[in-house]
C-alpha cells in the first residue's frame, strides 16, 4: 500500500512538471500546444537511449533529455509560432503524430515494443532505485521547476507573456518582441517536458510510444484547464486530481475519457478560468473565498 502511494506521488510529481510547462505556453503566452507529450516522449527516449547504449550517468541523460526536447521545441516553434492559435494547435498535434510515427518506425527506438531495462538513476554513487529516494528526487526536481516557473511569471518577462496572451497587437505596440517571447517560452516548456520524460523513463524502466501519444497530450491539457489556465498552483492541483482521481475510480475506467471530454466543455462554458484560475500565482483565492 505504501509502495502504491509512493508510486502515485512520483507520478503526480512528473505530471506537475508536465502541466506547469504546458501552462506556461497556454496560460501565460496564450498559445495552444496539443503535442506536449511528444516532447515528453523525446526526453524519455533520449535519456533511455543514452543510458542503455552509452551507459551515460543519469544527470547527463537528464540534461540531454531536456536539451534535445528543447531543441526540438525551438525547431518546431521558430516556423510555427507566427501562426494564429488555432493553426498552432493543429501543427503541434501533427507534430505529435509525426513523433509517434517515428518512434513506431525507427529501429533504434524499438518500434511498438519500446525500450526495456532502463537503469535507475545513480547520482554520486547513490542509487535512486528505492521508491522513497526516487520520490525525493522527483519532488526536488518538481520544486525546482515550480520555482523557476514562479520566478519567470513574476518577472518582467512573465508580464510580457501575459500581455501577449491578452492582446498580441497591443503587446507588440508596447515594444515587446512577441515572436521571440513565444519561441522562448515554447522552447523552455519543451525542455521541461523533456526532463519529465527522463524522470519517467528511469522510474518506470520500460517505455513504448503508447505513453507519449495524443492521449497523454490531452491528459496534460485537461490538467491545465481543470486547474486553471494561468495559475501555477492550479496546474499542481490539476495534475494531482487527474492523477489520483482516475486511480480512485478505477472501476469506471471505461468512462474516463468520456468524463474528460464532458469536463472540458462544461468547465470552459461555466468556469473557463478553471478551479484556481485568474492568472495569479497566489493563494489569495483561499482568503477571498474564490
Amino acid at each position: 500500500m505504501t509502495a502504491y502511494i509512493l508510486h502515485l506521488a512520483i507520478l503526480v510529481g512528473i505530471h506537475i512538471i508536465l502541466a506547469v510547462s504546458l501552462n506556461l505556453i497556454i496560460g501565460y503566452a496564450g498559445q495552444v500546444s496539443l503535442g506536449h507529450a511528444a516532447f515528453y516522449g523525446i526526453g524519455a527516449y533520449v535519456s533511455a537511449l543514452l543510458a542503455l547504449h552509452l551507459a551515460a550517468p543519469f544527470l547527463l541523460c537528464l540534461a540531454a533529455a531536456g536539451l534535445v526536447a528543447g531543441v526540438c521545441g525551438l525547431g518546431l516553434g521558430l516556423p510555427t509560432l507566427r501562426l494564429k492559435e488555432d493553426y498552432l494547435a493543429i501543427v503541434t498535434l501533427g507534430f505529435g503524430v509525426i513523433v509517434d510515427i517515428i518512434l513506431l518506425n525507427l529501429g533504434i527506438t524499438g518500434g511498438p515494443d519500446g525500450l526495456v531495462g532502463i537503469p535507475a538513476p545513480v547520482i554520486l554513487g547513490l542509487s535512486f532505485r528505492p521508491q522513497p529516494r526516487f520520490l525525493a528526487l522527483t519532488a526536488l526536481l518538481t520544486l525546482l521547476v515550480l520555482a523557476l516557473a514562479a520566478a519567470l511569471v513574476r518577472s518582467y518577462h512573465g508580464r510580457a507573456l501575459r500581455a501577449i496572451r491578452d492582446h498580441e497587437v497591443t503587446a507588440q505596440v508596447l515594444g515587446i518582441n512577441t515572436p521571440a517571447y513565444k519561441v522562448a517560452v515554447f522552447t523552455l516548456a519543451a525542455a521541461l517536458a523533456g526532463l519529465a520524460g527522463s524522470l519517467y523513463a528511469h522510474y518506470i524502466t520500460f517505455i513504448n510510444p503508447e505513453s507519449f501519444g495524443l492521449h497523454t497530450s490531452i491528459l496534460v491539457l485537461s490538467m491545465v484547464i481543470l486547474g486553471g489556465m494561468g495559475s501555477l498552483m492550479g496546474s499542481v492541483v490539476g495534475a494531482f486530481l487527474l492523477t489520483v482521481l482516475p486511480e480512485l475510480f478505477r472501476q469506471f475506467k471505461d468512462y474516463q475519457d468520456l468524463a474528460y471530454g464532458a469536463l472540458l466543455v462544461t468547465l470552459l462554458i461555466f468556469r473557463p478560468q478553471g478551479l484556481l484560475g485568474g492568472g495569479k500565482l497566489s493563494l489569495k483565492f483561499l482568503r477571498q473565498g474564490g
Partner: peptide, 26 residues
Amino acid sequence: LRGSHPLVPLLSAIGASIFLQSLALL
C-alpha cells in the same frame, strides 16, 4: 463561448471531440 478568447472555443471543441469519440467507444 462566442466572443471569448479564441483559445476557449478551440479547447471546448477538443473536449467535444474526446467526448464523442469515447461515447462511440462505449
